[in-house]
Amino acid sequence: MKSFQITASVLALAAIAPMAEARDQIRIVGSSTVFPYTQAVAEEFANQGGAAPVVESTGTGGGMQIFCAGVGADHPDITGASRAMKKSEYELCVQNGVTDITEAMIGYDGLAIAISRANETDWDLTLEQVYKALAAKVPVDGQLVDNPYKKWSDIDAALPDTPILAYGPPPTSGTRDAFVELAMHVGCAATDYAKALKEANADDYKKFVEEDCSRMRQDGPFVEAGENDNLIVQRLEADPNAVGIFGYSFLYENLDKLKDVKINGVEANIDTIASFEYPISRPLFIYVKNAHRGVIPGLNEFLATYASEDALGKGGYLEERGLVVLSDEALAAVQDALTKGVNMAAPQK
């Protein structure tokens, strides 16, 4: 039985495989928004002769869990995040011995609200209108009630007489967190109800923002479309009245099919996102485990590639991919932190 000999030898091979072997590839986990940029740097690094890094898209929260699990070859070296590390995550890191972490802001990402080019209206919404269209509970005549709006024209007569239908990211996504914080909370705070509440009772107001302003409606008009943004693009093409919420890079790649919905009269593009004129934009980060520097081969060189002007700078290949780049001073600070391995301070919240 020759096949038995072969299987036996393969089994033996599997058994003697070192359990926690040293590795010569850099491992990177984290946010799906940072993923395409890290991908680009990884490919550039491999083309320059480094061992091809392993880049995995796990979502910001999932990435932090894996990144903070410990120090050693079993654990990743870098995680990407579409928001800053939370205090609880930092504490988890410290608890597992991951104390020396470099935080680097690599640039900004805009969240686009997009609609098919087949839709002829020139859309321009305020964040308050976005909040009213998509929140679970909205104030009507001084009372907080279940969202009664079915059509855009119910919110403001000037808006089109079409049903509200928005495809957006699920709660596990960093994009969703950012959207809730940057669009929903701001839009919510702009309502008269919130303003009155803020004057009356600061604690109640805080609770109101954290709970009622953060809940997306579940009665149909807001559809969680999963982590696959291409799927949202296809649905928008099929239904010209639907809007979609995703990272700016997906709008950028599909500008022939989709157009953006202006927010407060501001169009989403690279310039308005970088200047924060466009209100829904957020910073992107990578976190580096400094204990792995000098242990994992190529990590320092990889970080130098990441920090280089060709990548992060103006006209660099990450900008070509849709990243909104940092100002010159901010970039210099990030390059300094990445190359020298400056440890971050514990986050406040």
């Binding site: 072997e21 590839q25 993923f35 990884a42 490919e43 491999a46 083309n47 091809a52 392993v54 880049v55």
Partner: peptide, 15 residues
């Protein structure tokens, strides 16, 4: 096993 890697693995022990 859904990582982005620009090289094929050379052994079954690599990602």
């Amino acid at each position: 096993m859904n990582a982005f890697i620009t090289a094929a693995p050379s052994t079954p022990f690599e990602s």
